[in-house]
């Protein structure tokens, strides 16, 4: 056997051949999945897997929930103490405000009925409970307890009382997955309140801030300025859903765009109840 034959034979030892086969299989799966744009065989496998594991996961969630609270409490003890102190302050403040609130409530009710302009006016919605967040560090999604059996469809926007949360990206019979607006792969066409300047809100992997791109330099902005969905961008979201408030902005000399960061209107990290709007991209309901 020549030294060259020996080298080739040595390269094709079984572990390397196995690795090569697995890598090729993985690349094939990635290519098929990428080409089919989330559909096809891979989507069927994902749906089947979710359908099988959802009941196990839900059972495990309910069984582990008390342990989860203990573990979470243990890991977040200092944060819980801080929260407790803040809550105590809030309780005393709220007690003071309660009497004022009662008087104002009747006025608010009258005003609300007079100017009934909620941001999701006229759209049917499905209420859902947040079943849990994705444990992955690479994506920011959450699971809802409603699926196709309740009428949830892929692409529908999801909102909380204060504004936009994200959109439905995957649906099984009894569950659905929502891609949060804070995910780096999420982009939302937005309008900046006073100037009507449009931009693109792109997640940066943080629950507390979202970057807005494509804002012309010199656009008049102020901190706290509300940002709404534009309804452009091929109509992925309906217009005028509150997205967030401008947290900071700056413009570098010679820069082609304003550096704008917004704080989401909704506390994305602590959601319990949400609404799925019966509205599909393209404007259909």
């Amino acid at each position: 056997m020549s030294s060259r034959d020996y080298g080739v034979n040595r390269f094709f030892v079984r572990p390397r051949v196995t690795l090569l086969a697995l890598v090729l299989a993985s690349i094939t799966l990635v290519t098929v999945s990428y080409k089919s744009n989330g559909g096809g065989i891979s989507a069927t496998f994902q749906k089947s897997l979710k359908s099988i594991t959802d009941p196990i996961r839900s059972t495990a969630n309910s069984v582990f929930h008390p342990i989860e609270d203990v573990v979470s409490g243990a890991f977040n003890y200092s944060s819980l103490k801080r929260q407790n102190a803040v809550l105590q302050d809030q309780i005393s403040a709220l007690r003071n405000k309660e009497s004022t609130a009662n008087r104002l409530q009747s006025e608010v009710q009258a005003l609300t009925s007079l100017a009934n302009i909620p941001f999701a006016q006229g759209l049917k919605s499905i209420s859902a409970i947040v079943d849990g967040y994705s444990p992955s560090n690479t994506q920011m999604t959450m699971n809802l307890d409603r699926g196709s059996s309740a009428g949830v469809k892929v692409g529908e926007p999801v909102v909380a009382a204060l504004g936009l949360i994200g959109r439905v990206v995957s649906v099984t019979h009894s569950n659905s997955t929502v891609l949060l607006i804070s995910d780096p792969s999420s982009s939302v066409g937005v309008t900046l309140g006073s100037s009507n300047q449009v931009g693109l809100a792109i997640g940066i992997g943080s629950y507390n801030s979202i970057r807005v791109e494509l804002v012309d330099p010199g656009t008049p902005l102020y901190v706290g300025e509300p940002v709404y969905t534009s309804g452009l961008q091929g109509g992925i979201f309906p217009p005028n859903l509150p997205v967030g408030n401008v947290a900071k902005y700056s413009s570098n000399l010679g820069s082609l765009q304003e550096q704008v960061t917004i704080t989401p209107m909704v506390d994305l990290a602590h959601l319990q109840f949400v609404k799925v709007l019966d509205w599909l991209p393209g404007g259909g309901a």
């Binding site: 299989a25 990635v30 999945s33 994705s134 992955s136 995957s170 891609l179 792969s185």
Partner: peptide, 26 residues
């Protein structure tokens, strides 16, 4: 060899819960 096979199986199951292209974790 076994490490690669275990990685492939665990990766496929992990991919079932992610939105990135199927097979990437595998």
């Amino acid at each position: 060899e076994a490490g690669a096979i275990i990685g492939f199986i665990v990766g496929l199951l992990t991919d079932g819960f992610l939105l990135t292209p199927f097979g990437l974790s595998a």
